[in-house]
């Protein structure tokens, strides 16, 4: 005996089964006295029901605290290297040992985490903002402008981004700020395409057309009707973008073309760990940064999935 999952109510409406009693109605209509539930609230309810999402939020909060508040509690010297302490074992003053130049590993994880999170979130924001604008304009304008703008996006998407980012990293020896733009420079293409698709769909909705009937201008239709209804997709995209950005940054760090010392990120830390794989068990150089990346990304994925469910259920209710 299976219980129906989310989004299934819409299937039932086909069979004329009233899945939720609409407010009772007389010749005129007396709406039942329930508090009006806004779309935001209903979305939140679906989101909150999803336990994985709550776990995800908890993990993300923990990571932020760990990376930004942690150093205030667990103070270590992240500026001066101390080769005498290089690769010291965990224990004593250094809970997770030291890395290959003598920095405290746990402290390094916090610093690296700051970079990973900052760059990840910032890159995602920049990419999503720019991509949304581009996609929305293209979707609205339609016709030739749309074709032209999308051709550019197609061209951009055809270039394997990893290659270009590597080349650019080699050219520019990036700092975290540059990394943000580097990653965003390619990620926005996918966002633009998605938003454009969403815009095209929304344009045909009757409530957008209705604006014309009451004498409103196109700009009103865009700002008041299309954008608020597209926000759902955009937010979901942005969430996944953060996870993707963290992974890209880690990959670049691993290849040695990411952020340069003394700045570091979890990926760079892993790269350093690689050199110690062969001779002896230096697990604290390898597992911690990797696990932190994985856990953070899974948590973000949980949140993104739950957000997607929340928005979809709202849209599907009839």
């Amino acid at each position: 005996m299976t219980i129906m999952g989310p989004g299934a109510e819409s299937q039932l409406s086909q069979f004329g089964v009233l899945t939720e009693a609409p407010p009772a109605e007389g010749e005129g209509g007396v709406l039942t006295a329930t508090k009006p539930r806004s779309a935001l609230r209903r979305g939140w309810e679906v989101f909150a029901e999803n336990r994985l999402a709550l776990v995800g939020v908890g993990v993300v909060v923990f990571m932020v605290l760990f990376c930004f508040v942690g150093p205030l509690i667990y103070r270590t010297n992240q500026i001066n290297t101390n080769l005498q302490l290089a690769t010291c074992r965990p224990g004593g003053a250094h809970l997770l040992g030291c890395d290959e130049v003598g920095y405290d590993q746990l402290g390094r994880l916090m610093v690296g985490g700051q970079t990973s999170l900052e760059v990840g979130i910032a890159a995602a924001l920049v990419a999503v903002l720019f991509g949304t604008l581009y996609g929305a304009v293209s979707g609205f304008a339609g016709g030739f402008i749309d074709s032209f703008l999308m051709r550019i996006v197609d061209a951009g998407l055809s270039i394997p981004y990893i290659m270009v980012v590597i080349i650019l990293s080699v050219i520019f020896h990036p700092s975290p700020i540059i990394m943000i733009f580097l990653i965003a420079a390619f990620y926005w293409l996918g966002v633009a395409r998605l938003v454009r698709g969403e815009t095209l769909t929304l344009r045909t909705r009757e409530y957008v057309q209705a604006v014309k009937v009451i004498g409103g201008r196109d700009i009103r239709a865009v700002v008041r009707h299309v954008v608020p209804n597209a926000i759902g997709t955009i937010v979901v995209q942005a969430t996944f973008a953060v996870a993707d950005s963290i992974l890209i940054l880690a990959g670049l760090g691993f290849l040695g073309v990411g952020v340069q010392p003394p700045a570091t990120d979890w990926g760079s830390m892993l790269s350093n760990g690689l050199t110690y794989m062969q001779g002896g068990n230096y697990w604290w150089l390898i597992y911690p940064p990797g696990i932190l990346i994985i856990v953070t990304c899974i948590a973000i994925n949980f949140i993104g999935d739950a957000l997607r469910d929340a928005f979809e259920t709202r849209l599907q209710r009839r």
Binding site: L247, F254, L270, M277, I286, I294, C297
Partner: peptide, 22 residues
């Protein structure tokens, strides 16, 4: 699957090497 998404490819590769080779 989630692990597949969230694990950086190179890290997974490193782990495989660590566990099955080294």
């Amino acid at each position: 699957s989630f692990l597949g998404y969230a694990t950086p490819t190179f890290f997974f590769a490193l782990l495989l090497v660590e566990w099955f080779a080294v």
